[in-house]
C-alpha cells in the first residue's frame, strides 16, 4: 500500500489551491443562474451546460466537432511551426531574404488576417484547406519573428568555438544556431498555438460545418443557449489542455536550460 507522505499531501494541497478560483467562478455562475435574476435562456447554469456536453458526448457529436477543430488547429500550427522556423532561419542567415521578407513581416504581423477570409473562401472554398490556410497565415508570424530574434541573439563566441573545433559553415545552423535559439523559438510556438485555436474557431463560426465554432453558431441560430455555452466551455478546456501540453513539451526540451533548473 502506498504511504501518504508529506510531499504528496503538499502537492495535493497545491493542486486544490490552484483549482479553487475556477471552482469559485463555477459556483458563483451556478448560484447566479439559479437566483432568478436572469432567465435560463440568457445564462444557463453550469450544471445544465454540463448536461448538454454529456449528451453531445454520448451522441458522438462532441468528438466529431472536437476532432475537426483540433485537426485544423494542429495541422495549421504544424505547418506554421515548420514554415516559420525555416523562413526565420533563412532570414537570419541571408541578407537578401531578410531584405525581402522583413517589410512583409512588419506589415503582415499586426494586420488582421481575418480580412483575407473572403478571398481565401473564394480561392480555397469552405472546407478544411481554407481554414488551415487561415491558421497558418496568422500563426506563422510569431514563429518567424521569434526564430529571427533567437538566431540573431546567439553569442558569437558559440559560433567561433564551433568553427574553432572544425565545424563547417553549413553545420552551424543545425548544430549551433537552432539549438541555441530553441528557447526563443519555443516561446514563439507558445504564442502561435493559442492563435491557431482562436483562428480556427473564428473561421468555423464564419463558414459553418463541423467543428466547435460551427456547432456554436448553429446552436445560436436555433436559439439554443445551452449549446452556445457548452461550446464556450469546450473551447476553454481544449485551449487550456493545448497550452499545458506545450508548456510540458518546453520543460522536456529545455531540461538543459537555466529555467529547467530546480530551486
Amino acid at each position: 500500500m502506498a504511504r501518504v507522505t508529506d510531499a504528496m499531501r503538499r502537492r495535493f494541497a497545491w493542486g486544490a489551491a490552484r483549482l479553487a478560483p475556477v471552482v469559485t467562478l463555477l459556483a458563483a455562475w451556478e448560484i447566479f443562474a439559479r437566483s432568478g435574476a436572469v432567465t435560463p435562456f440568457m445564462l444557463p447554469a453550469p450544471s445544465a451546460v454540463t448536461e448538454r456536453i454529456c449528451e453531445d458526448a454520448l451522441g458522438g457529436d462532441l468528438f466529431v466537432n472536437i476532432g475537426a477543430t483540433l485537426y485544423r488547429a494542429l495541422m495549421g500550427f504544424a505547418i506554421a511551426a515548420v514554415g516559420g522556423v525555416v523562413l526565420g532561419a533563412v532570414m537570419a542567415r541571408n541578407a537578401l531574404a531578410r531584405w525581402f521578407f522583413d517589410p512583409i513581416i512588419s506589415v503582415g504581423f499586426p494586420m488582421p488576417k481575418i480580412a483575407f477570409l473572403p478571398v481565401i473562401i473564394l480561392w480555397l472554398g469552405l472546407y478544411d484547406v481554407s481554414k488551415i490556410t487561415m491558421v497558418v497565415l496568422d500563426a506563422i508570424f510569431p514563429v518567424v519573428t521569434a526564430t529571427v530574434a533567437g538566431i540573431a541573439s546567439v553569442e558569437k563566441e558559440l559560433l567561433w568555438s564551433a568553427r574553432n573545433m572544425g565545424a563547417k559553415d553549413r553545420e552551424l545552423l543545425w548544430q549551433i544556431l537552432l539549438p541555441a535559439a530553441l528557447p526563443q523559438i519555443l516561446t514563439g510556438l507558445q504564442v502561435a498555438l493559442p492563435i491557431a485555436l482562436i483562428v480556427v474557431v473564428v473561421t468555423e463560426m464564419q463558414m459553418g460545418g463541423y467543428g466547435l465554432g460551427g456547432a456554436m453558431m448553429q446552436a445560436s441560430r436555433f436559439a439554443n443557449s445551452r449549446g452556445v455555452f457548452a461550446g464556450i466551455v469546450e473551447i476553454a478546456i481544449i485551449g487550456y489542455a493545448l497550452v499545458a501540453a506545450m508548456a510540458w513539451l518546453r520543460r522536456r526540451l529545455l531540461a538543459w536550460h537555466q529555467e529547467g533548473r530546480e530551486g
Partner: peptide
C-alpha cells in the same frame, strides 16, 4: 586565414554549448 583546430580558443564567458552535457 580562418579559424583552425591548431589554435584552440578559450573565452571569458566559457562559450560552452548549453544544450550539451
Amino acid at each position: 586565414a580562418g579559424p583552425g583546430p591548431d589554435r584552440g580558443i578559450v573565452f571569458q564567458n566559457f562559450a560552452l554549448f548549453p544544450w550539451k552535457t
